[in-house]
Design a protein around this nucleic acid. Structure first.
Lengths: 150, 150
DNA sequence: TCATAAGTAGTAATAATTATTATTTACAGA
DNA sequence: TCTGTAAATAATAATTATTACTACTTATGA
């Protein structure tokens, strides 16, 4: 996943505004800034990381608002909460189907696409489980930086 | 994954004791009970859930010991911390390669095996990422109980 | 059996997240 | 454009999950 460029970001923000209106969510300055920051980020930030970045431009925003907004946006499917092994929750705005490689040393999360996995059939064992809405692969290991760093 | 029967459990516990000695971990009553409870469980319990179950048999155990022990056993690869979307960490003792289906309504985690996934080649995009040590599939959806429950 | 280092219980502290409440804001309708 | 109102926010307090500290206890090897 790459950073969105200036044009893409504008498109994303416009789409975001429309999605908010559709979901009966007021388009507040705070929500826009939080979404913008998350859409620009490439490191799956936590609520606290986002707060520390946003407060530079929006000095009165509260950490609570960041938490609340992330929860709201997640509920409406506008952002995603990323599964981690850490206690802090992390988020992403990338909605295109993708998967994660997680470094268990530094915690970095890298996005990648994996078509062959996307197309593998779910095992018969699960046919009676329920309704599956999403599938994700998580690869764990040590990223190059951490391998070298040793 | 099925419950281990009485015989399997004994084998597991013996293996556990050996693994502890190998790792220079003292074989304490508490560690045995925590591992036993986790090995018998089929619901990927949290530290608190385990504590509530164990305290019935071992009334003096502390929650801190459960947390500390789980962290120790995880560090030595004797148990696994399961990735979830919740804030509470959850654990499992199952060491055979398997994957998880998670109900996003009730949070239940179901184990399943998926050989075709295990054998799919990792995408070229990731060849420079680092050293991959583990791969997991996570399916998300609504389990049958929750579908019916509506 | 005994020494000792590791482990535990009990308690206190910290980190992450959520709730409460008074104030402010977005936005639909006049 | 102005205004009323429900929704959202900021500030603060409270909870929840986890970890740290300390004095006591126990597993293990000599």
């Amino acid at each position: 996943m790459k950073h969105p460029n200036k044009h893409d970001l504008l498109v994303l923000l416009t789409e975001f505004e429309n999605a908010c209106r559709k979901a009966d969510l007021k388009v507040t300055h705070q929500r826009l800034e939080i979404f913008r920051e998350l859409a620009q980020a490439h490191d799956h930030p936590s609520a606290e990381m986002l707060y520390n970045r946003i407060i530079k431009r929006l000095p009165t925003i509260s950490l609570d608002t960041v938490y609340r907004t992330l929860a709201t946006l997640e509920k409406h499917g506008l952002i995603t909460r990323v599964q981690t092994l850490e206690s802090q929750a992390r988020f992403e705005a990338e909605m295109i189907r993708h998967h994660h490689a997680v470094c268990r040393k530094c915690g970095a999360i890298t996005d990648f696409s994996w078509n062959t996995f996307d197309e593998v059939q779910v095992p018969a064992e699960l046919s009676g489980w329920g309704r599956i809405t999403k599938r994700n692969a998580i690869l764990e290991g040590i990223c190059n930086d951490c391998v070298k760093g040793n």
